[in-house]
Design a binder for these strands. Structure first.
Length: 155
DNA sequence: GTTCTCACA
DNA sequence: TGTGAGTA
């Protein structure tokens, strides 16, 4: 975004900054990444950078763990229930043959051998990963109470 | 000083 | 699961 507005997807925070904001260890953030809960940007030298959107995701993840009693595997299951095809033009044959359509152990962005539509794509820029991971809205997303492409929220 | 991966126990 | 070694 070049209009001066804040781009919530722009990777700007180092892992140390995020760890301090969330009051968790740096190692914990690396573990969340290894488990597929988060996809931080990597600089050409391999350093992780997190966006405001990543920070929101992590705050939600922390809430699920500390307040709702979920563990990492539980959150992975939860994320695996996101109907990714709804964000990728609807359920077509490519989606029906994709493991992300019937598997429910991990979010689609960590699934191997995904359909052609998603193969080789950068999941960080995918609307499935970029959706609002608000704990309060998870049910809406999973059950389809709202349409991903029709944001009717009035501000 | 920060962050990286990997290894160790 | 947490710590340290050696590195960039």
């Amino acid at each position: 975004m070049m209009d001066g507005n804040i781009d919530i997807y722009e990777p700007i925070f180092t892992i140390g900054v995020i760890a301090r904001k969330l009051n968790v260890a740096v190692q914990t953030l690396r573990m969340y990444e290894q488990e597929g809960l988060i996809l931080p940007y990597k600089t050409p030298t391999g350093r992780r950078l997190y966006s405001l959107h990543d920070l929101d995701r992590l705050q939600c993840i922390r809430k699920l763990i500390t307040e709702d009693g979920l563990n990492i595997n539980g959150i992975k299951r939860l994320l695996s229930l996101i109907p990714c095809w709804e964000f990728k033009g609807g359920l077509d044959e490519d989606c029906k043959s994709c493991p992300a359509y019937y598997e429910a152990v991990a979010p689609c962005w960590v699934i191997q051998n995904v359909g052609n539509k998603c193969r080789g794509q950068d999941c960080r820029t995918c609307p499935v990963y970029r959706m609002n991971l608000s704990c309060a809205k998870m049910k809406e997303v999973i059950y389809g109470h709202i349409r991903p492409d029709k944001d009717k929220e009035k501000s």
